[in-house]
Design a protein around this nucleic acid. Structure first.
Lengths: 152, 152
DNA sequence: CATCATGTAACATACAAAGTTACATGAAAC
DNA sequence: GTTTCATGTAACTTTGTATGTTACATGATG
């Protein structure tokens, strides 16, 4: 797999859930995302632990939102995934004895750190509610999107 | 392999080369980097094509710097590697039909793009000569580092 | 108790970087 | 000219991680 798409995926799920009351089974969500129910449960596990969503077993069970969408940022969601590494590049050796490599690492670390900080900052500026608002604009006059129609 | 370390690696090689006249065989460089000669040739190929280094076969052959170190930035070196992706994360689907996913992508793309731009900008601010200068400071009063002593 | 849905372990697949082997090409030394 | 050295490159192996899949235990509902 080329790149980590868990953040993209879990946001997709959350935004879908925000459009309808729920609950949603992992299977329903998986169909909408064209993936496997276990994958859904996996990426949702961290959000459940942080209380952003709740899950229930048995008949009528499934996933429900359990947070104020205007208080949860994309950065929070990212953190709920376990804060996977943001950059595809890194240093060859983290604590090299070679002074040459230390000089290289210092220069790269600075650039890497700045980029990571900016990305986290940007993610922290966007709430799930804002995403929902943007979606509403995109939907325009259309009827609220039904997740069950997603399969088309 | 966890993360792409080619940029880190090739910079390490270039900085080593800047400390001594050369030429350097792939094998010598590989030993200094604790890796394989073919890996060296691979990461150096792009730099050769752009004229940053030259290579010669046969006796007395090997790699030599062929550029003004004060004119080549880390961003140039990155480009010579083929501009591999900088971010470890990406969108699930690049051109989704689903409006929900479009909204998610739009938000993430913005953040991703900003972070990539900043990283490239930072890399563009640092020249190989500046790296060499930093290294000189780290070396302090010490004798110029001999690459053959690297194996220690 | 049968059914539904999550929770999770275990295994399979896909992909890219890094490491390795093998050999062709060309240059210098003898 | 032949040997030796060094690059150039293809092909294959190894490794790490995300993703996909199967199987089954757990618990809730009807």
């Amino acid at each position: 797999m080329k790149r980590d798409s868990r953040l993209s995926g879990v946001l997709h799920v959350l935004l879908h859930m925000a459009q309808q009351p729920g609950p949603f089974t992992s299977e329903t969500l998986a169909k909408a995302m064209d993936t496997n129910p276990v994958v859904i449960r996996r990426i949702m596990a961290g959000l459940r632990e942080l209380g952003y969503v709740r899950s229930e077993k048995g008949h009528g069970g499934g996933w429900r939102l359990a947070c104020d969408l205007s208080k949860v940022t994309l950065r929070d969601v990212y953190a709920a995934l376990g804060s996977p590494s943001l950059l595809a590049m890194g240093n060859r050796t983290e604590s090299p004895g070679c002074l040459v490599e230390q000089a290289v690492n210092a220069a790269l670390d600075q650039a890497f750190h700045d980029a990571e900080a900016l990305l986290l900052s940007r993610l922290g500026e966007v709430t799930l509610a804002m995403l929902g608002e943007d979606l509403r604009k995109r939907l325009g006059s259309r009827k609220i999107h039904d997740i069950s129609a997603h399969r088309a």
